[in-house]
């Protein structure tokens, strides 16, 4: 039972991180029908920025709480900046181009950002300081899970709730939903579509960066390649849940996290990544619209 619980919690942690990334995918896809390949790179850049800021502040001898706070905030802000800029350079000029063009542009952006970090920083693994402190009130649960696991799960839950409120009740959230439903019509009723798309990228980037910072301090090391596989798996999760649907992305992420965790725990860890891909192919064949997605018929 203990082993099962371990796997369950590690699956939940994994799923939470996938969910933070998958939300960005699903939001962007919902609005401009583009698989933002560079999204995983935003996650990686978030982790790198946090590492750099935390490293500098540690050397100048700041106290732990301040470092956590500042590093996370700076990482979030920078990722937002990157998300915004990427959209302006690589996707905005292609808004009326065929989807294939935008997709190729996204792949190019992903490749560019990976190599940008590789060249400007390093190709080695970098040790990431454990930013998450050992909270006193969590030590009584330490036989079940590490504090960082709790922090990841709890902060993911908070982000989900906030995001749901934002989409459901604020004016910008409404504008986002309207744009996702029908961009032309949204423009006609006076929604600044370009602004809405920018905001979507910014929010998606912020959640991805949060995921990056959390997972980096949980695992303890990062490199320039971390975003690629994580991004693809989050995409699998988004498709599993039904791309374009936010609760779907969360559900899909958790399902993927658990299945991966149990698969590696009980079957084999050699083929972990293979398993995720086979899972994706099976979903796409048998239920392309995902668990919570609507199947849309193509209109002319």
């Amino acid at each position: 039972m203990g082993y099962f619980l371990d796997l369950f919690l590690s699956g939940l942690t994994r799923g939470s991180i996938y969910a933070l990334i998958a939300l960005g995918y699903t939001m962007v896809y919902g609005i401009i029908q583009l698989i933002n390949f560079a999204h995983g790179e935003i996650y990686m850049i978030g982790a790198f920025t946090a590492l750099i800021v935390a490293g500098v502040l540690t050397i100048y001898g700041w106290n732990q709480m301040a470092i956590i706070f500042i590093a996370s905030i700076v990482a979030l802000l920078y990722s937002m900046g990157y998300g915004y800029t990427i959209e302006k350079i690589a996707y905005k000029p292609l808004r009326h181009a065929p989807r294939l063009s935008a997709l190729i542009s996204a792949i190019g952006m992903s490749l560019f950002l990976q190599n940008y970090v590789l060249l400007a920083q390093t190709s080695d693994f970098m040790l990431f300081p454990s930013l998450i402190p050992d909270f006193k009130f969590l030590t009584s649960f330490s036989h079940i899970a590490r504090p960082s696991e709790f922090v990841i799960i709890i902060s993911t839950a908070i982000v989900m709730v906030l995001l749901t409120f934002f989409i459901k009740f604020t004016k910008t959230g409404k504008a986002m939903r309207a744009t996702a439903q029908d961009r032309q019509m949204a423009m006609l009723v006076g929604i600044d579509v370009n602004r809405v798309i920018s905001i979507t990228f910014i929010i998606g980037s912020a959640t991805a960066a949060l995921g990056g910072v959390l997972i980096a301090s949980h695992i303890g090391q990062i490199n320039f390649y971390m975003g690629f596989i994580a991004g693809i798996k989050a995409f699998v999760a988004a498709v599993l849940g039904g791309i374009g649907s936010m609760p779907g992305a969360v559900l899909g992420s958790l399902v993927l996290g658990w299945t991966e965790s149990f698969f590696t725990g009980y079957v084999s860890s050699d083929y972990e990544d293979v398993f995720a891909f086979i899972f994706l192919v099976l979903i796409l064949i048998f239920r392309p619209s995902g668990i919570l997605g609507r199947s849309d018929t193509q209109k002319v």
């Binding site: 583009l34 989807r99 294939l100 997709l103 693809i232 891909f277 994706l280 192919v281 064949i285 392309p288």
Partner: peptide, 25 residues
């Protein structure tokens, strides 16, 4: 055979996955 019924952008991801599966195997 199984994946070509899918929409274009899913195809990109599935083929990417397939490429990785072959390499990992």
């Amino acid at each position: 055979f199984p994946v070509l019924r899918l929409r274009g952008d899913y195809l990109a991801i599935v083929t990417l996955g397939f490429g990785e599966i072959i390499r990992l195997v």
